[in-house]
Computed example of a mutant assay.
Amino acid sequence: MKQDFYEILGISKGATAAEIKKAYRKKAIEFHPDKNPGNKEAEEKFKLAAEAYEVLSDSDKKAKYDQYGHAAFEGGQGFGGGHHMNMDDIFSQFGDIFGGAFGGGGFGGFGGGGQRRMKGSNLRIRVKLTLEEIANGVEKKVKVRRKVKAQGVDYRTCPTCHGTGQITKVVNSILGRMQTSTVCTSCGGSGQIIGNKPHGADAHGLEISEETVSIKIPAGVADGMQLKVGGKGNDAPGNGIPGDLLVAIEEVEHDTLKREGENLHYDLYISFPDAVLGTSKEIDTVTGKVRIKLETGIQSGKILRLRGKGIPSLNGYGSGDLLVHVNVWTPRTLNKEQKEFFDRFKEDEHFIPKPEKSDKSFFEKVKDMFS
């Protein structure tokens, strides 16, 4: 079972953004590879702290985590920080957290003599899903145009910053000697410059390539959720690591089913004779059609609950229900014979409304539906 992100950082659920950042910096410095060379346990704790911070420092991801827990970041390549991060991800994304704790913004011996590794830009796409795909989970293959290193390109260490990607200056001030670091203007912070640029490559040695990417989407996702496919964004120049592919979920409206969280709603219209005599009807569900039985004398407004026929929980805690709303259709036009039939029975005791105490009001039905 995965450890709680708040527990990893040693903070409460109500912690502020500043408190989250402070707690992460404390953990990161404690378990940093430079302070714990060769210590696999410390390295693992360092990665876990980074995963926790990646989610809790982002208001949208934090809200999803607070609501769904780790399940909000599972499936396929993962949502946000739910996947197992590597050290390149951590240092490229959260390097500024450490400030000067490890030599003026560098990272000591990690990545080859403190050489900075840049991360490529992210790409964003939108994927449309039907209710059936959302209910059952699906694997989608999409074509993505991304920047990759051109064939034959080579890079060499930037002579200005010597591969660190930063220029460090020490100045004297009234407060004493102060050290500042700025991004190297020669290489743009990558630590490398192009040695050979193939024809068709851009100024960074990259070219456009089309690639088919497979995305595993777990059951229970919702409209507006965002998945992250690691490493399928644009490449970074030199020895940098690729960006990510961010996939926004768009839910396609169903013809007959309406979604409300994990529950689904279905409006079933029946005729007056069917309501009087009882019948069976075939209705849509996300797993196919099912036949339901309607009792004799069923009332308009009756709600039938088909348990477990809704959308699976993203947390894996079962599925929602399918609520069938029965609507008795009253004919708007009648012929002479039909009118005479209803006139004959208008005052019959069987046609006079006699609601029983067990017949719930509309407001009670709504209350039950949400409970």
Rank of each mutant, 00 (worst) to 15 (best):
340 E>L: 15
32 H>S: 10
21 K>W: 00
286 V>P: 08
217 I>K: 03
170 V>S: 15
76 G>W: 05
52 A>Q: 09
45 K>G: 02
171 V>R: 13
140 K>S: 02
14 G>H: 08
243 G>V: 11
74 E>G: 12
291 R>I: 14
233 G>K: 00
312 P>D: 05
51 E>T: 06
361 S>E: 08
310 G>Y: 01
338 Q>P: 02
288 G>W: 07
42 A>L: 01
339 K>F: 01
122 N>A: 14
127 V>W: 09
270 I>V: 12
127 V>Q: 13
189 G>A: 12
111 G>M: 10
297 G>P: 11
284 D>R: 11
340 E>Y: 06
70 H>N: 13
359 D>W: 11
320 G>C: 07
168 T>R: 14
226 Q>W: 01
167 I>E: 13
96 D>S: 14
113 G>D: 10
59 S>E: 15
322 L>P: 04
290 V>L: 11
77 Q>S: 15
77 Q>C: 12
90 I>L: 04
6 Y>A: 02
290 V>M: 07
104 G>I: 04
352 I>P: 01
98 F>H: 10
30 E>T: 05
221 V>H: 00
129 L>N: 05
58 D>R: 03
57 S>T: 09
343 D>Q: 10
82 G>L: 04
146 R>S: 08
252 V>G: 00
349 E>S: 10
219 A>L: 02
88 D>S: 08
95 G>W: 10
107 F>H: 15
219 A>T: 03
55 V>Q: 05
81 G>S: 11
23 A>P: 09
230 G>T: 09
344 R>C: 12
213 V>W: 04
302 K>M: 04
29 I>D: 05
268 L>S: 09
44 E>F: 09
367 K>C: 04
140 K>V: 07
43 E>N: 09
366 V>P: 01
348 D>F: 05
72 A>Y: 13
13 K>R: 15
38 G>I: 04
78 G>E: 12
74 E>P: 00
182 T>G: 04
207 E>P: 00
213 V>I: 15
135 A>F: 02
128 K>P: 08
219 A>E: 07
